[in-house]
């Protein structure tokens, strides 16, 4: 009996060592030489494998980052500046600071302000719907409301608000990977700079139709009146195709455009205080008055 136990132990031990030796030899022989930094970079990544960087996953990003000559060509939108700094440290390179971005829904045509004229009863997909027709409201530009963006978001940052029929972005979860931007067939969603302390001004409408038609279709739409364009003193507003667009790199967050917009299409986000429309309007009036006086003075001088 004892002998049997001993023999069993001996044979199993020998067998185990033998197999270990084979495994070791094979692993040595077939080892793939790889830059060890790839593993280090991959570890520094968020690991969501979302593809927001344009590569197949975090591993692919790491390989590309190690291979690339400088880090300008690669950027992880999810990890943002911090991750890129870590990556730069591992690779011993410099990285330029990029402003953190966030997905912004540029449509505020909620159900109550945008009357429906049709009922869609096909499959629940924005892309199917958008390919089929212009949408079930008078606005053929805005959100069609089937939630393709919600399905595309891997971070649970988007959800449809059943009351407005529009998607809402949870900024704490949004990583600006851009999946929703690609998913939206109407190009309603845009990646914008988060802005200082999360403050920013956005035109929440992309309707390019002419004013009267837009007015009929949606009460919250940009009607292309151009008042914001005339008011802005920072040249931050681009006014093309009957619709205003705020260039976030130029906007100084003075909130004047928001105050003068007649339809409320311009939204201020993240400001600590609600907008005091009267005060801002007074400020604009004051400035205009001064400008007019200055112009008058100039004219007088010229006359002299």
């Amino acid at each position: 009996m004892t002998q049997l136990v001993i023999w069993t132990i001996v044979i199993l031990t020998v067998l185990g060592m033998l197999l270990a030796a084979i495994l070791f030899a094979v692993a040595k022989k077939f080892k793939v030489e790889e830059d060890p930094r790839i593993d280090d970079v991959e570890k520094a990544m968020p690991g969501a494998n979302c593809g927001g960087c344009g590569f197949a996953g975090c591993r692919a990003f790491a390989e590309a980052a190690v291979k690339a000559d400088d880090l300008d060509s690669v950027y992880c939108p999810v990890g943002g500046g911090e991750t890129m700094k870590k990556v730069a440290a591992i690779l011993g390179r410099q990285v330029k600071e990029k402003a953190p971005m966030v997905a912004v829904v540029r449509c505020n045509g909620s159900c109550d302000v945008r009357p429906t004229v049709n009922v869609y009863c096909g499959s629940l997909s924005c892309r199917v719907k958008a390919t089929l027709y212009s949408g079930d409201t008078g606005c053929s530009w805005g959100c069609v409301g089937c939630g393709d963006c919600v399905g595309a978001c891997q971070f649970g940052a988007l959800k449809m608000n059943p009351e407005t029929g529009l998607p809402e972005v949870d900024e704490s979860k949004c990583t600006a990977c851009g999946a929703c931007v690609k998913a939206c067939p109407k190009a309603v969603i845009e990646l914008r700079a988060k802005g200082p302390r999360g403050m920013r001004e956005v035109v929440c409408c992309i309707n390019r139709d002419r004013g009267p038609q837009v007015k009929k279709a949606c009460a919250n739409a940009c009607i292309g009146c151009g008042i914001c364009f005339k008011t802005c003193t920072h040249e931050a507003i681009v006014f093309e195709n009957n619709v205003a667009y705020i260039d976030y790199s130029k906007c100084k967050l003075c909130r004047e455009c928001e105050a003068v917009c007649p339809t409320g299409a311009i939204h201020g986000v993240g400001f600590p205080k609600p907008l005091d429309v009267e005060a801002v309007k007074a400020r604009i009036a004051e400035r205009k008055k001064k400008a007019a006086e200055a112009a008058a003075a100039d004219k007088k001088e010229e006359e002299k």
Partner: peptide, 8 residues
Amino acid sequence: SKLLVSPS
């Protein structure tokens, strides 16, 4: 009354 719309 509204028009229903769907793909074929």
